[in-house]
Design a binder for these strands. Structure first.
Lengths: 139, 139
DNA sequence: TAAAGAAGTTAGCCATGCCTAACTTGGATT
DNA sequence: AATCCAAGTTAGGCATGGCTAACTTCTTTA
């Protein structure tokens, strides 16, 4: 019987958490509450709350006081979010937008980009990488 | 003495309201609470609340039971928001994204695009309009 | 191994922005 | 002019996702 990947509908906040958790796991090997909190610039209490919720939604396995790991569903979702973030960042970099602004804008808009829009931007980015002339003096 | 245009920091919700109000004024000549509510798909009560808040912030003049008009500050802001919306829509149209998706994505991301990013996208859109070959089969 | 400090949790609170229900106002109809 | 109904308002509530303060657990170290 095929596994149903019950499309998890995630809020912007949930996406931010998953993105950071994956990033922490990739760089440090684990993601503690305190690290997630620091990384997102919020309180540990808020992280504990959200982590319990994400456990309830099956996106990660959480054991009180002990830590957490992403489930398969959570990791898949997190990877997609990270990929979207990277593609948008690449695109804006190509346009010569300032790094700080890129960070800000991508963090805000990434949660609202549909797969098809993302594909279009991805394709465009690939084209533009071959024709840098187009990009001269956009700003 | 020069007028200080106290940069109004507007939330996504505020921007949505201003955008619709300007649109209604442009098409119908006025913006009633009931029209704003229908247009945004929310209750009249919510609109009344927000309109009172926007009055307090100097973005519009509101007279109980009588109606509202945008102040200069409000209209300027609304025009900027509308322009940003239009530019993003044009850009995604050029990429061949489906109309429905464009609406959805633009409505979500428009609130998070900085002026410099917008300028870059505007410039790129202009370039792309001259080189349609680049746009073949992006999706 | 005891205790101190770091990490984690809980409880209770707040702002934003939406809702419904009930009430008020004003304009159109008779 | 009285009435009716659409439009508008108010009151009170809810969900999300933050916060602080106080408490518990874990880990490290003297």
């Amino acid at each position: 019987m095929p596994v149903k990947t019950n499309a998890v509908r995630s809020s912007a906040a949930v996406e931010d958490y998953l993105e950071r958790i994956l990033e922490l796991i990739n760089t440090k090997g684990y993601a503690r509450v305190v690290d997630i909190a620091t990384s997102l610039g919020i309180s540990q209490a808020s992280v504990t709350n959200m982590v319990q919720r994400l456990d309830g939604e099956g996106l990660l396995n959480y054991e009180k006081y002990r830590g957490l790991v992403l489930t398969t569903a959570g990791e898949t979702l997190a990877r997609n979010i990270a990929r979207r973030h990277q593609l948008l960042t690449d695109f804006l970099k190509l346009l010569g937008v300032d790094e700080r602004v890129i960070e800000h804008d991508v963090e805000g808009m990434e949660h609202h980009i549909s797969p098809s829009t993302l594909r279009a931007i991805e394709g465009l980015t690939a084209q533009l990488k071959r024709r840098p002339a187009l990009l001269a003096r956009l700003n």
